[in-house]
């Protein structure tokens, strides 16, 4: 089956500083893929670049195709057919994504008119259905409310409703629950899962929270300094990470049960994209790094069928492979 979205060799540079160094990523129909990594690792930029949402000063190279159609450098008209329609996006701060002086109805109907050509009563009925779907109580009355009259969790529900207005095949959720409280986060993640099941919609979940990604995705890509360093099925990655950075991220997470242990902090900080170390960008912080690691950039290489790691010294090798 051909993938829904296929990204290959995607590179982005801001003012001559490369921030994305060649991303290869396929998203199949209906699957949920998680992107984890720390700030500046390129999780969001990947998708902003693919959808032509970066400012003009950004230089984008490589390829991103949707059903075989190229998106990078595509005409505005082509992108308009894709953005919001085939691929929708929701962001961390839903309040700033909505227009504060327009009612929810206006904003939902705008989306419906743009992507589905619905007007008047038909649009109102569809808007009502979408609000119901995302669990806004008393939807009929709330249609004429303004964004500030809703709580943070409800605003994110409305953003999801607007994103669903175009009946997208892929939803990019960029830190959708980071600004929300734990119990509300659980509600929103639940909603996203229900919506995905109902529409067989693919999802890319961008998050810094390993737990959120682990629980809600089929596959996970770990990003570091503008590269994917490990790609694996969600359950396997967390049970058995191979890249030292992925291991570090998991070790840095305080446990919620069992014995308390000292956290394995990764020493140092994320490198400045203007001064990347030669070779593997993680090598200076890596306790397993050897001479070879500083010499050249390791490529993301498949190890077993569904796992790939960009490391010269991945920490679990042949012995375990034989066992699988």
């Amino acid at each position: 089956m051909a993938p829904l979205v296929s990204i290959s060799g995607l590179k982005v540079a801001f003012n001559g500083t490369p921030v994305l160094h060649g991303i290869d990523l396929d998203i199949d129909k209906g699957e949920a893929v998680g992107l984890v990594g720390e700030s500046g690792s390129g999780k969001s930029v990947t998708w902003l670049a693919a959808l032509g949402l970066l400012p003009a000063k950004a230089k984008v190279a490589g390829s991103a195709t949707l059903d075989g159609r190229e998106l990078i450098g595509a005409d505005g008209k082509v992108l308009d057919q894709v953005r919001g329609r085939r691929i929708a996006m929701i962001f961390q701060d839903p309040a700033s994504a909505l227009n504060p002086v327009l009612t929810i109805r206006r904003q939902l109907c705008e989306s419906l008119a743009l992507h589905r050509g619905l007007r008047g009563e038909a649009a109102r009925i569809e808007a009502l259905r979408l609000l119901d779907l995302v669990g806004i109580p008393d939807a009929n009355r709330r249609l004429s409310a303004y964004p500030h009259e809703f709580s943070g969790g409800q605003v994110q529900r409305i953003m999801i409703a607007i994103a669903l207005a175009g009946q997208p095949h892929l939803l990019i959720a960029d830190e959708p629950t980071t600004a929300l409280d734990a119990t509300i986060q659980a509600q929103i993640l639940d909603l996203l899962a229900a919506v995905r099941r109902e529409f067989n919609m693919a999802m890319v979940l961008i998050s810094h929270d390993l737990g959120v990604v682990a629980e809600n995705c089929d596959r996970v890509c770990v990003m570091y300094a503008g590269r994917i360093v490990e790609r694996a099925p969600a359950t396997r990655l967390f049970d058995d990470p191979w890249h030292p950075y992925a291991q570090g991220l998991i070790g840095a997470l305080p446990p919620l049960d069992g014995a308390r242990r000292r956290l394995q902090a990764i020493p140092g900080t994320v490198p400045d994209p203007r001064a990347l170390p030669s070779g593997c960008a993680f090598a200076p912080r890596c306790s397993f790094a050897g001479d070879g690691c500083h010499a050249g950039v390791p490529l993301l290489a498949p190890i077993v069928q569904d796992r790939a790691v960009a490391c010269l010294r991945p920490q679990r090798l042949p012995v375990e492979l034989a066992a699988e």
Partner: peptide, 16 residues
């Protein structure tokens, strides 16, 4: 129960 944990899928999570 709302605190997500890597390595386990949400089984029986209490969603308020």
């Amino acid at each position: 129960s709302a605190s997500p944990a890597p390595g386990r899928r949400s089984i029986g999570r209490i969603v308020l």
